[in-house]
């Protein structure tokens, strides 16, 4: 964490506004170095899709962005705010859990396995965080939750329990739950990998819809078609580093690196 030299206050409020800034991030689990110096910039309103073979560090990168994993070195900022640390007097102070939790309310996270709360109804799943983390009143939060459920096509499931829903429906609820906090950025960790093939489409449609409304998103996925259609930027990761990135047409159709070509030839 010693290499913080960039002035993170320096953010412009136009279309070049950098929403997510990942700078030189290293992360190891014991002797295994999973991220080996990752840099990534995501502008506000953009959709970034991260591709890469399993074990390339995509999920770990996503989890460092909302501080579910602590980085070993480097730094991450969201909308100009350092994640997990506070800068003062030439030092970085580690934030307390309470403050990290507050930062996470700006970062929506959608898990591969949905992780809905099974003992709460769909509506309670959506209302829980706004009420307890943002201290919003319950009534308006419920109303907003109903609107969000309507938006993901599950208006009639408000009182169902998660286990009474299909995988695709559960993941749509999970997306609505993340949206209930009105996050600045939405992170998707392989949102369709746990789904039956015929349910993948309904979840991707919801994510496409969100992309159309200018939500900033980072999506880790294996759905190349989705990347081609929705992404503004495709990032290809391998071995804990970003191998190449650019518009989907460039990265997917004319990859410059051998590793990207090898990966794409396997999955396409």
């Amino acid at each position: 964490m010693s290499d913080v030299t960039v002035d993170i206050e320096d953010v412009k409020a136009d279309s070049d506004h950098v929403m997510v800034d990942v700078h030189g991030v290293h992360k190891s689990f014991g002797p295994l170095e999973v991220l080996r110096g990752v840099d990534l910039r995501v502008r506000a309103g953009e959709v970034t899709v991260i591709l890469g073979p399993s074990g390339s560090g995509k999920s770990t990168l996503l989890r460092t962005i909302n501080h579910l994993e602590k980085v070993n070195s480097g730094w991450i900022s969201i909308d100009g705010e350092l994640i997990g640390y506070r800068r003062s007097g030439g030092k970085l102070h580690e934030l307390k859990e309470k403050d990290v939790l507050k930062q996470r309310t700006h970062i929506g996270f959608v898990f591969q396995n949905f992780n809905l709360f099974p003992h709460l109804t769909v509506l309670e799943n959506l209302v829980e965080a706004p009420v307890s983390a943002l201290r919003r009143p319950r009534g308006p939060s419920e109303e907003k939750a109903r609107r969000l459920l309507d938006r993901v096509g599950l208006a009639e499931k408000t009182d169902a329990y998660p286990r009474q829903l299909s995988g695709g429906q559960q993941q749509r609820v999970a997306i609505a739950r993340a949206l209930a906090l009105e996050p600045k950025v939405l992170l998707f960790d392989e949102p369709t990998s746990a789904l039956d093939p015929e349910l993948v489409g309904e979840v991707l449609d919801v994510i496409k819809d969100l992309a159309g409304t200018g939500t900033t998103m980072i999506v880790v996925t294996h759905e190349i078609g989705f990347a081609r259609e929705v992404a503004d930027t495709v990032v290809f990761m391998d071995g804990g580093v970003v191998v190449e990135q650019g518009p989907p047409a460039a990265v997917l159709d004319a990859p410059r690196h051998e590793r990207t070509r090898a990966f794409l030839s396997k999955v396409l």
Binding site: N115, A133, R177
Partner: peptide, 19 residues
Amino acid sequence: GQLEAAAALGIPRLRQIRR
């Protein structure tokens, strides 16, 4: 995953335990 989801949503620690 339940704890991770609660943490990712920013739910306060005591509330995570109780709720």
